[in-house]
Simulated assay, not measured.
Amino acid sequence: MKTLQQQLGTYGLYHRSKRNVLTHFFGIPLIVFAALCLLARIQIPLASVVIDGAQLFVLASAVYYFMLSISLGFIMGVLFTLLLVAAQPIAAMAFWPWLSIGVGVFVFGWVLQFIGHYYEGKKPAFVDDLIGLIIGPLYVTVELLFLMGFYKTLEGEVNAIAGPTKA
């Protein structure tokens, strides 16, 4: 498994344009939220407990993020849990409203992503490596943390791999 720095640096190679990163600040959370809305309708019975697909996704994602970084795993776990809580009322809607909102938000999030990659002039990272789909939410989170002045050492390590950002 690649290190946190390798994962973020590789993903960053596809995201050097500030306009691309900006579209990702909105697009990626929308995609994750929509996926959670859609996955929450999948019921998985485990002994006397029933979990849903969204809960399983959040748990698996948090475990992966914790393997990369304890502190970032915690942050991502909290963020994904907040999105999960917000997704539950939509998952509880009747079929057509649930599906319309879930698919609509998902498509809108991807439209934002592709607009960003138009500005970037590069294809999305997941085209070359599917792990980019799970690194994307972590990447936008650390980019926000970098802007807030946190994780300066990590920022330097990521930029050493990905190179400087451009306008």
Rank of each mutant, 00 (worst) to 15 (best):
G109P: 09
I134D: 02
I90L: 10
V32G: 06
D128A: 05
P137F: 12
V49E: 09
V105L: 14
V142P: 04
L72Q: 04
G77D: 10
Y139V: 05
F108I: 15
L38G: 01
V105T: 11
Y118H: 15
L39A: 09
M76Q: 13
A86V: 05
I42N: 07
Q55C: 08
D52L: 09
I75M: 09
L138V: 04
V85E: 06
G132Y: 02
Q43W: 00
I135E: 00
F33I: 07
L83E: 05
P164N: 15
H117W: 14
A40Q: 09
I42A: 15
T165I: 10
F146L: 05
V111W: 07
G132H: 03
I31R: 04
K122C: 05
I101Y: 06
G53C: 14
G73E: 00
F126M: 06
G109S: 11
L72C: 07
V158G: 10
L36D: 04
L154G: 03
Y139D: 02
I42S: 12
E157D: 13
D128T: 00
A60C: 10
P164T: 15
L84H: 08
P97C: 04
L82F: 12
K152L: 12
V142I: 14
L72S: 07
V32W: 11
L99F: 13
E157G: 03
L79R: 08
P45T: 03
F95C: 01
V50S: 15
S61G: 09
L46H: 00
T141K: 05
I31C: 09
V158H: 14
P124I: 08
V50C: 13
R41M: 00
L130F: 12
W110N: 15
P97R: 06
A47Q: 14
G121E: 08
L39I: 00
L147N: 10
A47K: 12
L39W: 07
A60Q: 03
